[in-house]
Design a protein around this nucleic acid. Structure first.
Length: 273
DNA sequence: GTCCAGGTGGTCA
DNA sequence: TGACCACATGGA
């Protein structure tokens, strides 16, 4: 399957997924549920899925093929001309539609953490409790563990995986999800209901809930505000002393459409500035 | 050694 | 509500 208007290295570095297995520049094995695909950048903004592993998956959905990013970028440039440079810099990034359990747990890990550490923690859990999706030349990719397996991990074990003070949140949320087990139906919730439901989970606050909504439930209205976004907004609008509330108010007054997508562009741009 | 990271939960006004 | 603080821990 061929994909256009896509840039794999940018997506891998965009902080929404932590588990792509990099074989080379522009060459990855990508996990999704109990399957994986091998994908190669074939030209500057084109890629091709050359092989599938494990259980067949809906890769068009995963890679967000049903959104027209070329058109979205045009609209973004019209709506937010002040972010022309960020938008061009981020060209080819997709907002992935990742599996919910994985997204919930990895973004609980992400709180007050850095991307390298998140990757190390999440990948070591998958190594211990996931199943092999791909293995070749000493490079191996594992699935994210099922909710049943996640619910058996103890607080001490999560600490061993580098969860720090988040260990008890992970235990609590694993048990909540195991009992409710209806997170697949959350696709049908309204944005408001989804946020409220996600924020009821231990370790999930406003920012993490929006990441989960954006990166797993396809909610492009959601605008996660993290430390990088705060820096960007304070800098862009010359408001160095702005409180968190002033920043979110500013964001809500400026960004009306494609909020999650422009958020991701700004995040990616400022993190590499 | 110091600062920081895709913040949250608890507490108090 | 909104402001403030403690929190684990490795990366830079």
């Amino acid at each position: 399957m061929k994909l256009k208007y896509i840039h794999l290295d940018k997506i891998n570095d965009s902080g929404q997924t932590f588990r792509w297995l990099k074989l080379a520049q522009g060459h990855y094995v990508v996990p999704y549920n109990l399957g994986a695909c091998e994908i190669i950048q074939t030209s500057e903004y084109e890629a091709e899925i050359v092989q599938e592993y494990g259980i067949s998956q809906d890769w068009k959905h995963y890679f967000d093929e049903y959104r027209n990013y070329s058109k979205i970028d045009e609209e973004i440039l019209n709506l937010y001309p002040q972010y022309k440079e960020a938008t061009n810099f981020s060209k080819g990034i997709r907002i992935l539609n990742q599996e919910a359990v994985e997204t919930i747990f990895t973004f609980i890990f992400s709180a007050n953490n850095n991307i390298k550490r998140i990757m190390n923690s999440v990948n070591s859990i998958c190594l211990e409790y996931g199943e092999i999706l791909y293995s070749k030349d000493d490079k191996t990719l594992y699935s994210f563990p099922s909710i049943e397996k996640m619910a058996k991990i103890t607080e001490d074990e999560f600490t061993k995986f580098g969860a720090g003070y988040r260990a008890k949140y992970l235990v609590s949320t694993a048990n909540t999800l195991l009992q409710s087990n209806d997170f697949k139906n959350w696709y049908n919730l309204s944005d408001e209901q989804l946020l409220k439901t996600l924020e009821s989970l231990m370790g999930v606050g406003p920012k993490v809930a929006r990441c989960i909504g954006l990166f797993s439930y396809s909610r492009e209205s959601m605008f996660p505000v993290d430390t990088w976004i705060k820096k960007a907004i304070r800098n862009e609008y010359n408001m160095p002393e702005a409180s968190d509330k002033q920043i979110t108010d500013k964001i809500n007054s400026i960004f009306t459409k494609h909020r999650g997508i422009i958020q991701q562009y700004i995040f990616y741009y400022y993190r590499f500035l």
